[in-house]
Computed example of a mutant assay.
Amino acid sequence: MAKDLVVPLAPNVWRIPLVRDLVNGFALRDDDGQVTLVDMGISRSGPKVLAALAAIGSSPSDVTRLVLTHAHPDHAGGAAHVARATGRGFTVHHDDAAYASEGTSPPRDRSFLLGRLFDRMARPGRDFEPVVVEREMTDGEVLPIAGGVRVVHTPGHSPGHVSLLHEETRILITGDAIFNVLGLRWPVKAFCTDFRMTQQTAHVLGELDYDLAAFTHGAELRSRPREAIRRFLLSHPAR
């Protein structure tokens, strides 16, 4: 297994570093060999996702599910490439489904100048290549992935942003609710649809049970991650 292409998190669960540790996707494999891929990185990350698939001994034909935590170009940029290779559509939360289908980022937080500028530049199909959404997920449902992945709707970064809890291995994928880049931190304010809501909904991550926190931006936390996230949330309350 090429360790630079994947980072094992638990049996049959891997982090895929797509831009070093700064942008990550994930792979989960069922006991029968079916593979689910979560987040596809930036526009040039598609081939890297497929290389990671080969590194874990699987092929595009083994992929039965593609999931996006949200419809931003650093997560959906490589999505169309992976969809063509696997012949699969995407599972996206209902509130981000239309954006993924159009290749357009959701609105940015217009209380910030940079957010207003990003909104002015947004054009359908130009943020990332549109993808086919074949399934819309909802808060609290358990996706039939590797023993069960619970959907935790954490809107604010985008309307349909989700975190994912793999209950069997007790791994939490935070999505962009919280970054782990030079320590725990909030996502960039202007990249959020509603930054204050991002802060508010992230507090649910301190109430879940997990033994490892995996981030779409930054390396995982393996030692007492729930306590670390709780400390962060207490010291960085919504304002």
Rank of each mutant, 00 (worst) to 15 (best):
E102S: 15
R123H: 08
P130E: 05
M121T: 10
G77R: 07
R108K: 05
E168P: 02
A76N: 13
E102R: 15
G148V: 06
A83G: 12
R170Q: 07
V133F: 07
M137I: 08
A76D: 12
A177C: 09
G125L: 07
R120E: 06
F179R: 12
H81N: 12
H81I: 14
S105F: 09
V92N: 00
G89C: 15
H94S: 12
F118R: 08
A80L: 08
H94T: 13
E168W: 03
I171C: 04
A97D: 07
R120Q: 05
A76E: 10
S101F: 01
A76M: 13
A83S: 15
P124K: 15
R123K: 14
G125A: 10
H75I: 08
H93C: 10
V162L: 07
E102W: 15
N180G: 05
G78P: 10
P130Y: 00
V133Y: 10
T154N: 01
P159W: 07
L164V: 07
R170E: 09
D96N: 13
V149F: 03
H166L: 14
R84Q: 14
L172R: 08
A122D: 08
M121I: 07
T138I: 07
G175H: 06
G89F: 06
F90R: 14
T154C: 05
T104Y: 12
L117P: 01
R108D: 05
A177Y: 05
D176Q: 03
L114S: 04
D74H: 14
V132E: 14
H93W: 09
G78W: 08
V92P: 00
Y99P: 05
T138W: 09
L113D: 11
L143H: 04
L113A: 09
S101L: 09
A97S: 07
R84T: 08
V162W: 06
L143T: 07
Y99S: 11
S163W: 04
G175M: 02
R135F: 10
S158I: 04
G78D: 11
F118P: 05
A80K: 14
T169V: 11
G125Q: 04
L114H: 03
P106T: 10
R84K: 14
H153M: 01
V142N: 06
V131F: 11
A83R: 02
A79I: 04
A76S: 14
D127S: 09
N180D: 08
A100L: 13
G77K: 00
V131K: 11
H81A: 08
R135P: 06
L165E: 02
R110N: 03
S163F: 06
L172C: 04
A83F: 03
S105V: 13
P106F: 10
L143P: 06
V132T: 15
D139M: 02
E168L: 11
G125D: 03
V152S: 02
G125N: 01
